[in-house]
Design a protein around this nucleic acid. Structure first.
Lengths: 160, 160
DNA sequence: AGTCTTCCCATGATATCCCATATCTTCCCA
DNA sequence: TGGGAAGATATGGGATATCATGGGAAGACT
């Protein structure tokens, strides 16, 4: 499957519409009606994914051995807090004021690919978050090549 | 299957009518006559679902190996306490005073999607419940990406 | 007869659809 | 190789449809 890659910054017009980056729409598939967006639990941003992916999550949640209160938590936060946003004929969505206000998004949105999902940030907040993440990675001496090496060595089996 | 997503707040008019959000009606299907509403066992809110789903619940209850008193409790609370509410031609329902008084609903109702069912809250009570859930999620370090990762690992058919 | 409920129509706000335009990339042909 | 053309993409604006909401009228039950 294609994954969400790279970052794009698009403007929000007066009507509150913003174009979903064409590469992301391509990942979703040509006959996708829209996306699902909800508030991230960890960071001050929104999470986005396909409806199909959320339904997959929905089905698999039942199989997971989650405690009732966690289950309730997820259902309230994710499913209750999520919004289904259909594309218009130009591939735009309209972000509800309630959602973007909570994460500081105003006239611009940064779409950040995260493989199976993507995030929607206020560009300024994203910048500070990125520099923080970068210095943190340096501090922890995270090396990509080392990770890849260890993966290909041990758990190879997986494709991708 | 389509699931109940997102949240909507609608007003109750003088006659006690409130519109069921159009997206929810769409999930129920175009030829659905109404919904079933009953008091939640866990939270101070009402549960709503399709009549078909209640029948499904009824069937799965019989298969479960529940103790007689629990079974009796559920039958009394859910089936005895539930109300079947038909739509008017505009997709509105009339909530019985007895039901909404018990959960603090007054002039506004928040419809909260929960996949197969949805909940009806007093907006103020919902806000309290949501912030509590969110901070709880952070405290327990629930990561959606982790959940999604485990989901795609176990349940993923292969495509997507 | 009176009150309550159900059906039907009206209305304002919002969202959706459709068309237009500018900028950028890609492709083609010289 | 370079210039031009064609397509794609992001963005903007006007027109239309949908939805939530309100109120009146007809019917039912007491």
């Amino acid at each position: 499957m294609a994954v969400f890659l790279s970052s794009f910054v698009n403007k929000i017009d007066k009507k509150g519409r913003v174009s979903v980056p064409a590469p992301f729409r391509a990942v979703l598939g040509p006959d996708t009606a829209g996306i699902v967006v909800f508030r991230s639990l960890q960071v001050e941003a929104l999470e986005g994914c396909s409806i199909a992916h959320l339904e997959l999550l929905s089905q698999s949640l039942e199989k997971q051995d989650l405690s009732p209160d966690i289950f309730d938590l997820i259902e309230t936060t994710i499913f209750g807090g999520s919004v289904q946003l259909p594309f218009d004929s130009e591939g735009r969505i309209t972000l509800p004021q309630s959602l973007i206000a909570g994460v500081g998004i105003q006239e611009e949105v940064a779409f950040v690919g995260r493989r199976k999902t993507f995030q929607l940030w206020d560009p300024a907040k994203l910048a500070t978050h990125e520099t923080a993440a970068r210095s943190k990675a340096r501090a922890k001496d995270i090396s990509l090549s080392k990770i890849i090496a260890s993966v290909t060595q041990t758990a190879n089996g997986g494709k991708e």
